[in-house]
């Protein structure tokens, strides 16, 4: 356990040093958030129908998405990519640690450190100037906090699975693009899930992606009452377990091929 914590914290500290990337990311995300809010404003103004989510909630939902964008499993780890490409993954096995846990730990850092750097300024600016609201209640805030932890675990499990898939696809371009598109659309980052047609919502609620963004965000705005956090966490946990087991099986198969054929 100590080994994995050490790997996590060292990678975390390393990633905190990328200040220029954080500034650029923050500016980009504020810009996009602003555009998205304007689109939703146009949409809400042009329709008289009562929407399943209030405009104020949608604005907050959009800003949460912008603030936590770096947490989304949309890309693969460049270091693992180059290890696979240069056939040096086997050297990872020289350390007395479980490879899945090693990769999972480093991915926690990859998903959280940049998010920390970007989310703080976006939260502050969003709350102060861009119409973002504070959590519905203290209970909502607590529920949101728990769900974000669940979202990180889930997002990291999916990212780790993507990283492992590199052992088959080498470049990872195709799988990354497909996954990124799926994650961004199905997690509610493009359009909040409550605004999808009912039939689509039924499917999207079952898929893992909602647990990465939609459910935590709706807990924040109070669209899901705080006491229902237990279901959100259960959904996240079940998918995390499925993805971890899947990732482990895939990694073992990949390693078996590699340690048998050399690499």
């Amino acid at each position: 356990m100590k080994a994995y914590l050490a790997i996590l914290s060292s990678r975390f500290r390393m990633l905190l040093q990328y200040r220029a990337a954080a500034v650029a990311g923050t500016i980009t995300q504020i810009f996009w958030g602003w555009i998205r809010v304007m689109i939703f404003e146009a949409f809400y103004r042009s329709s008289d129908v009562v929407q399943p989510m209030s405009f104020e909630d949608v604005v907050t939902y959009v800003w949460l998405g912008q603030a936590l964008l770096a947490m989304i499993p949309w890309n693969t780890d460049p270091e693992i990519r180059s290890m696979v490409r240069t056939r040096t993954v086997a050297y990872e096995l020289l350390k007395p640690v479980d490879l899945y846990n090693l990769w999972y730990s480093r991915t926690i850092a990859t998903r959280t450190a940049p998010t920390m750097l970007r989310s703080v300024p976006i939260f502050i600016l969003g709350l102060a100037y861009f119409g973002m609201e504070s959590p519905e209640s203290t209970a909502s805030a607590v529920a949101f906090g728990l769900a974000v932890i669940g979202a990180v675990m889930l997002s990291v499990a999916l990212s780790t699975l993507l990283n492992i898939s590199l052992m088959w696809t080498l470049s990872g371009q195709g799988i990354t693009r497909i996954t990124a598109a799926a994650v961004i659309l199905f997690s509610g980052l493009t359009i909040p899930i409550p605004l999808f047609p009912d039939w689509a919502q039924t499917i999207l609620r079952l898929l893992p992606f909602a647990g990465i963004a939609d459910t935590p965000f709706r807990l924040y705005v109070g669209h899901i009452p705080p006491h229902e956090v237990i279901w959100v966490l259960a959904h996240q946990l079940i998918w995390t377990i499925i993805l971890v087991v899947w990732g482990r099986l895939l990694l073992n198969r990949g390693l078996r091929v590699m340690v048998v054929q050399g690499g």
Partner: peptide, 22 residues
């Protein structure tokens, strides 16, 4: 091929190895 961490200062790599090997 190095087994140290490319981006870490040498001494931090050593500290990390201490934890990895317990």
């Amino acid at each position: 091929r190095t087994q140290l961490w490319w981006d870490l200062p040498v001494i931090e790599s050593f500290d990390l190895l201490k934890d990895i090997y317990n």
